[in-house]
Design a protein around this nucleic acid. Structure first.
Lengths: 206, 206
DNA sequence: CTCCTTGTTGAATAACCGTATTATAAGTGC
DNA sequence: GCACTTATAATACGGTTATTCAACAAGGAG
C-alpha cells in the first residue's frame, strides 16, 4: 500500500538509544505524578513510542522501573562522588549534593516515588543497598580527609550516617514542600551539622 | 425471604465507627503496598465492608485519603507533642518521635506513601502545612527550654529545622531499609546533632 | 538487489479501577 | 408495632491497566 509515502512510518533507533529514551520518559512520568503516573501508556506517549516497546526492551514494566532506579542513582553518584569530586572534598560533595542539578523539584519527586517502591519491592531494595553502600563509603572518605591530622570527637561512621540522613531529610522536605526551605537554609543545615565535629569548613562568600 | 435466618446479614455501625474502620484499613493498605494498594476494593476488603461505603462516608476515595493523612499526623503529634510532652522536654520529644509506636515499619511505609501524595496533590499539601507548622513550633519550644539560661551559638529556628529534618531523614532511611539503622544509631544521631549546641542532654543509661 | 535480523506497531485481551445507582435492612423515634 | 432515616450490599458501567501476539518494516549483510 503506502508505497507512495516517502516518509517512513517510524524511526528505528538502536536498542541502547531506545532504552535511554524510555528511561528518561519514565523519570519524567514519575516526577509528574508519582508512581501512579508510571504507566505503560503514559511512558510510551512521553517517549513517542508504541506500547510494545517497554516489553520488548525491558521484558516488563518492572524491568523498566529497575533500570530507571539505577539511572537515577547513577546520576546522583555521578554528580556527587566520582570525577568532579575525585579527591572526595567534603565541601565539594555538599555543594554537589545540593546543586540545582540534583535538587530540582522534578528530580526530587521522582526520587520520592522511587523510594516508595524500594520500600515495597524486595528486588529494588537489593539494588538500593549496593548503591547506598558505595555512597556511604564516599562520604566517609570525604569526612576522613576533612578531619585529617585532627582527633575527631566522633566516629567517622556515625558522622557519615548523620550527614547522609540529613541530606535525605533535606531532599524529602524540599520535595514535599519546595517553598518551605530556602537553599540557604539547606546549606546552613549541612555545615551546622558538620562543623562542631570537623571545625570550620564553610566556604567564604565571594 | 430469609425471615428464618436470625443472624443479621451485616453489622450496622455508627458513622464515626465505620469511618475509623475505613481509615485504619486505608493505613494498612498504604503500609502494605504503597499508594498503588490504596484501592477501594482492597480497603473495603481489609475493613470487611462493601465497596459503596467509601463513597458513602467520605464522598470519594480522595476524601478518605485526606482523612487518612489527617489521622496519621494526629497520631504522630498526639504521641510527640501534647499531653505526655506537655512541658515540651526535648528529650521526651526525641524518645517519643523514635518510639516503636511511631517508627514501626508499617507506620513508616504508610508515611512514605502519604508524602508521595503530598508532593503531587495541592489540597493535601495545604493540610500538610498546617500540621507541619504546629510540629515545628513544638520543637522550637522544646529547644528553647533545653537551652534555658544559656547563650545558644545558633538560632533556635535553624536548630529546629536541622532537628526536624534529621528526624525525617531517619524515618525515611528506616522506611526504605529497616535493617540498615539500629535504633541506637538513630538515637545517637539525634543527640549528636543537638548536644554541640545544647550541651549534654543524653539520658543516662539505667 | 535479496535475505534476514530485529526494532516497531497496534489491536486484542483480561483484569482491575472508581463511581453511580438501586434495593435492602438495621436501628431509632414515636 | 409502625414509620422513617440511613448504613449497607450488590451490581452495573465506562474507563484504564499491563501484557501478549501477529503482522510489519527499517536497515545492514551478503
Amino acid at each position: 500500500m503506502n508505497i507512495e509515502n516517502d516518509t517512513p512510518r517510524f524511526r528505528r533507533y538502536t536498542a541502547r538509544q531506545r532504552r535511554e529514551m524510555l528511561i528518561e520518559a519514565g523519570l519524567t512520568c514519575l516526577a509528574r505524578g508519582g508512581i501512579t503516573a508510571f504507566t505503560v501508556d503514559k511512558i510510551c506517549a512521553e517517549a513517542s513510542a508504541s506500547r510494545g516497546l517497554i516489553t520488548h526492551h525491558f521484558k516488563s514494566k518492572e524491568g523498566l522501573l529497575r533500570a530507571v532506579y539505577a539511572a537515577a542513582y547513577d546520576r546522583m553518584l555521578g554528580a556527587a562522588a566520582p570525577g568532579r569530586v575525585v579527591d572526595a572534598d567534603i565541601v565539594e560533595m555538599i555543594e554537589a549534593l545540593l546543586s540545582d542539578e540534583l535538587t530540582g523539584p522534578d528530580t526530587l519527586r521522582a526520587w520520592l516515588a522511587l523510594w516508595g517502591e524500594v520500600a515495597n519491592n524486595t528486588a529494588l531494595r537489593n539494588e538500593h543497598r549496593r548503591y547506598y553502600d558505595y555512597y556511604h563509603d564516599r562520604v566517609i572518605i570525604g569526612i576522613r580527609r576533612a578531619a585529617a591530622g585532627r582527633k575527631l570527637a566522633i566516629a567517622e561512621g556515625a558522622l557519615a550516617i548523620m550527614f547522609i540522613t540529613l541530606i535525605d531529610g533535606l531532599w524529602l522536605q524540599r520535595c514535599i514542600d519546595p517553598e518551605r526551605l530556602s537553599s540557604q537554609d539547606v546549606r546552613d543545615a549541612c555545615y551546622n551539622l558538620l562543623e562542631p565535629y570537623l571545625g570550620p569548613i564553610r566556604p567564604q562568600k565571594g
